[in-house]
Structure formats: structure tokens, C-alpha cells
């Protein structure tokens, strides 16, 4: 930004050490300034602001009106759809995310043991995770559409009646899980890299001790890669908490195309109304900014709670790698 001032002219020249020190500090400030401004404006301010707005009624047109705990009371008693949104998001956290992590870990494990074609297979598994979520969801809506979709055509040819996939309340979330697992290639790549870094001699030592494959996995592999697993689990859980894009596409297009700004999200029958979608609906379609802020506060508390719970519990299971940790 601003160029260096010429030199502290009037003052007596400081010792070279202090001049260097001051220069260093100035450089540090310069390097960090944009980021620090970003932290305050795009992180600190909104965090404080949702706290305040959550106690108000605010529709963006008139000034926020203080209503105390009314938003939180409405959340507990009045909001008919919130329970469903919470249950759907719990489904994501307890079923969809574990499916993603376990599947990716399994594929990573198989890839790390494979001798041939690892590069090609890795590309194959990674590619789907690159397709934009909206495009992937659109593709799956078509491929899995119950009437003419290729998947049900193939199943029919095999004599199986295909399920209604994204069009039935009971099948919508499992179908979204299929989509999520299909798109978790980045996790596979992360796990594979970690697994390949486990030192061979540890396995050889375990072999000498007569360890079977399962106990090798439990006592050698998992302890060594636990930091990577931990980080992957935390980020996947946070992603699960903000699960939006795929659900938005399915809930606004699953029925063959509702328009952008009408109708409540969550087709079919609220089964894809996840917490972030409900927040979006409240805040940016109904313009209940105060109530949406209260929902955001809940989401923040849950996000921080989950990540700190995982991180704290991790002390007991994350293996500390002696000197090499950076």
C-alpha cells in the first residue's frame, strides 16, 4: 500500500538494530494488513452482528426492533419446520458424513495396496469430486430419475423395479448420500497420500510379531495417520453442517422445476430441508433477518461445539509424532 516514508528525518538516527527492527515490524504490518482488515470486517463484525440481530425483528426495510428472546422462543415452540430441518441435518452428520469418510478410507486403503494402475484409478475416483456440485446434482437428478433415468432402466433390464430416488421423501436423503459418496474423491486422495507415508518397516515389524491385517490396521496404520484422519473428519463434518448446494438443486428441481423465488425448499415433503436451507429460506426469501440470525447463532454454537469436541477428544486417539510434528 503506502510506500516507505523517506526516513524518520528529525529524530536522531537510531541504532541500526532498532532501525531494522522497526522496518521488520512495518513490513509485518504491511503483509498482514489486508488479511487483518478481512478478519475484522468479514468475520469479527458479522459474528458480533448475528448476536445482536438475533434479539431483534429485522426485515431490512425498517431498523431492527429489539424483541428480546422472542426469536429463540419461536425456535423452540412456534417454528413448525425447524424440527424437520434439524433432524435432516442430523441425518447428514450421522449417516451421510460417516458414509463419505468410511468409503473414502476404504478406497484409499485399497489404492495404497494396489500395485498396478494406481494413478489411473486415483484419477477416476478424484474426477467426480471436481464436477461442480450443482452440475453433479443435476446429472444425478437425471441419471436417477425414476421414469426414464438410465439407472432404473438398467435395473429394469435386470428385472428389478428401481426405487423412486430423489422424488420420494424416504429415498431422497439416501440418494443424496450416494451423490455425496460419489463426490468425495478429495478425501480419497488425502487418505491415500497419508497411507502411502506410513513407514514400511512398521508393517514388517508387525509381521514379525505375527500381527494379522486387522490388528495391523488398528495398531500401525490408524495411529500413524490419525492426524490426517482427524483433520479430514473435522472438515467433512463442517461441510456436512453447511450442506446446501446439492439439496438446493434437488429441492427446487426434483419436482420437475419450481421457479427460483417461490415455494418452500425441501422437496419432496421437506425431506431435503436441511438447516442451512431453512436459514436461507427465512433470511433471504421471507427476509426474517432477525430470526435467521438466531438460527445462525445456533449453527455457530453447534459448529464450534462439534469441532472442539472432536479436537479435544482427539488427544486420546491422535498419535503424537515425536520430533517431526510441525
Amino acid at each position: 500500500m503506502a510506500p516507505y516514508p523517506a526516513r524518520a528525518g528529525a529524530r536522531p538516527r537510531p541504532a541500526p538494530r532498532r532501525a531494522a527492527d522497526r522496518r521488520r515490524r512495518r513490513l509485518l504490518a504491511l503483509l498482514l494488513a489486508p488479511w487483518a482488515i478481512g478478519v475484522v470486517v468479514f468475520f469479527g463484525y458479522p459474528l458480533v452482528s448475528i448476536g445482536y440481530l438475533s434479539f431483534t425483528h429485522y426485515d431490512l426495510l425498517s431498523a431492527p426492533r429489539w424483541i428480546g428472546l422472542a426469536n429463540y422462543a419461536y425456535m423452540l415452540r412456534g417454528d413448525q419446520q425447524l424440527g424437520q430441518a434439524v433432524r435432516n441435518t442430523l441425518w447428514v452428520l450421522l449417516i451421510l458424513v460417516p458414509c463419505q469418510v468410511l468409503f473414502s478410507f476404504g478406497i484409499g486403503l485399497l489404492l495404497s495396496r494396489a500395485r498396478r494402475g494406481v494413478g489411473l484409478l486415483r484419477t477416476v475416483f478424484y474426477l467426480p469430486s471436481l464436477t461442480p456440485l450443482v452440475a453433479a446434482a443435476m446429472g444425478f437428478l437425471y441419471v436417477f430419475n425414476p421414469g426414464t433415468g438410465p439407472v432404473n432402466q438398467v435395473l429394469a433390464a435386470l428385472g428389478v423395479t428401481g426405487p423412486p430416488w430423489y422424488t420420494s421423501p424416504g429415498w431422497a436423503k439416501p440418494s443424496l448420500t450416494v451423490l455425496a459418496v460419489w463426490g468425495s474423491g478429495n478425501l480419497i486422495v488425502i487418505f491415500l497420500a497419508a497411507l502411502l507415508q506410513v513407514p514400511r518397516d512398521l508393517y514388517e515389524a508387525a509381521d514379525l510379531d505375527g500381527a494379522g491385517p486387522l490388528s495391523k490396521l488398528r495398531h500401525v496404520t490408524l495411529p500413524v495417520i490419525s492426524p490426517v484422519v482427524l483433520f479430514a473428519v473435522v472438515t467433512t463434518v463442517i461441510d456436512g453442517l453447511q450442506y446446501f448446494d446439492q439439496a438446493y438443486v434437488v429441492s427446487s428441481l426434483g419436482n420437475g422445476g419450481a421457479k427460483l423465488d417461490d415455494g418452500v425448499l425441501g422437496y419432496p415433503e421437506g425431506s431435503t430441508l436441511f438447516f442451512p436451507l431453512w436459514l436461507y429460506q427465512q433470511g433471504f426469501r421471507y427476509f426474517n433477518m432477525g430470526y435467521a440470525s438466531a438460527l445462525a447463532v445456533v449453527m455457530l454454537v453447534v459448529a464450534l461445539g462439534i469441532s472442539s469436541a472432536i479436537l479435544l477428544r482427539s488427544r486420546s486417539f491422535v498419535h503424537q509424532t515425536g520430533g517431526t510434528g510441525r
Binding site: 478478519v39 468479514f42 468475520f43 463484525y45 458479522p46 459474528l47 452482528s49 448475528i50 440481530l53 431490512l60 473435522v234 472438515t235 463442517i238 453442517l241 453447511q242 446446501f244 442451512p276 436459514l279 436461507y280 433470511g283 433471504f284 433477518m289 435467521a292 440470525s293 445462525a296 449453527m299 455457530l300 459448529a303 464450534l304 469441532s307
Partner: peptide, 18 residues
């Protein structure tokens, strides 16, 4: 900042830009 979901911060930022 990496741990906070984007929807949490959306309302105040939208108000700011509005």
C-alpha cells in the same frame, strides 16, 4: 474462520452490502 459455516455470517454481510 475455516470452521465457521458460511451461512452463519451471511445475514450481516448481506445487510452490509445492501
Amino acid at each position: 474462520m475455516m470452521m465457521v459455516p458460511q451461512q452463519v455470517l451471511a445475514v450481516p454481510l448481506y445487510v452490509m452490502w445492501a
